[in-house]
Design a protein around this nucleic acid. Structure first.
Lengths: 229, 229
DNA sequence: CTCCTTGATAGGTCCGACCATTCAACCACT
DNA sequence: AGTGGTTGAATGGTCGGACCTATCAAGGAG
């Protein structure tokens, strides 16, 4: 019964007995420890790997990971592979969801959240001044907004969608005008800090419309196959 | 490598060589056919099972399925297990998303869609007249709205969320007043058929507020463990 | 005709062996 | 002593064969 083993390992991870980066004992030892065969243990490990909790490398051991949006994206990726309008669908989805997330964030923004938003903007400002793209910082900004909104489910879903958009290799968020992206982010952050849901909604709306205009230039890119890293 | 086998089977499913309900050959035969050991084949099958493409039953064979929201829900379920405010988060999420989905549906509703919406309402009417709950019909209705909106990604995400809500065993959608649920569904459908996005948005908003009121009575219910069916 | 038994079928688990990869310790050469 | 290639242990990946268990349908007892 590999399910029991899987749940046991999962519980160890959740309870903090196994932290991110820890190496699991060798499969042979772990199998003995659980009193099952290596086959059964491997089934359990395989499953947890698919769920993003373990990273397995031949010869290198099995390492505990913390599943983020990337892990959740795997089934979606498989399901949507070859979907013709995937990029448009994803952008449209964000268009529907993110304004509301920002509006919710505006009603819940604490002083600490405001400070974090200002920090994020400052980081972006430095990158733009250095003439660089935002990319990673941009993803972090949108995740930060979702976090301020205080809804874990929304956070995970947005992370998943971002992983899928990342597959498409689109320069989705900042487009080719980093300064414009920063300007729009500033408007979003200010509306949230001011606690103005309507302004936040509008600001995100405008930001995403800019995104939608930029993504049509990225047709033809196809999502990574499920077997690729 | 089991990844190749997995992709090969997946391709067969996508290309229609294997249709939903078909039974896969026995593992031993299939392993020979692919020229790999049964262990490797089982790894591939295991993965496709987690992705929702295969249903495996000891003694009964392996059957091809079409993955819906339930399959995508598995990683989320694992990730969100034990999350304290899961039910509230989910309802809030729908509160953010579904009004926009209905609004989009209103702008895209064709005559065929309108006919389907009317059919769905008729089925619900009969159930209510018979004094029964809506449950399954209700899920189908919300899926239908997402389908009319024409965004596959939204459809899958909503299916996933519905699967999670189903775990919570909440009488989320219809509450204890089936007639009220039907009334609200009628308002939603009419707004979509009339092509009135604002009205659709408002109708869904009201419907979900009723949901939010009913869900607070279902506290204490916990999501199914990942090992349960 | 119904119900139980029974046997074949197919997935679940186990074992032991061997292969492939990784990584670190070791040694030779400079 | 430093550098670089070599070697060997550790570890996951695959294999084949055996046996267990659940399922289901065919056949026999009532």
């Amino acid at each position: 019964m590999s399910d029991e083993v899987r749940d046991a390992v999962l519980t160890m991870i959740r309870d903090g007995e196994l932290n991110e980066g820890d190496r699991l004992p060798p499969e042979r030892d772990l199998a003995n420890q659980f009193g099952v065969s290596r086959t059964t243990l491997r089934d359990a490990i395989r499953e947890l790997e698919l769920l993003g909790y373990l990273a397995v490398r031949q010869g290198g051991g099995t390492v505990v990971r913390n599943p983020g949006g990337e892990a959740l994206a795997t089934p979606f990726r498989t399901l949507l592979r070859g979907h013709p309008h995937l990029a448009e669908d994803l952008v449209q989805f964000r268009h529907m969801l993110e304004p509301e997330v920002a509006a919710l964030a505006a009603t819940r923004c604490t002083d600490e959240d405001a400070a974090e938003l200002r920090d994020a903007l400052e980081r972006q400002r430095r990158l733009v001044d250095a003439g660089r793209r935002l990319l990673a910082e941009d993803l972090g900004f949108h995740r930060l907004v979702a976090r301020v909104a205080g809804n874990t489910t929304v956070l995970h879903v947005l992370n998943t969608l971002q992983a899928l958009l990342h597959d498409l290799r689109s320069r989705m968020l900042t487009g080719d005008q980093p300064d414009l992206g920063l300007q729009q982010h500033t408007a979003i952050a200010n509306a949230i800090i001011d606690g103005d849901p309507d302004a936040a909604r509008r600001a995100v709306h405008e930001h995403l419309e800019a995104v939608e205009r930029s993504i049509v230039r990225d047709q033809g890119a196809s999502p990574r196959e499920v077997s690729e890293p």
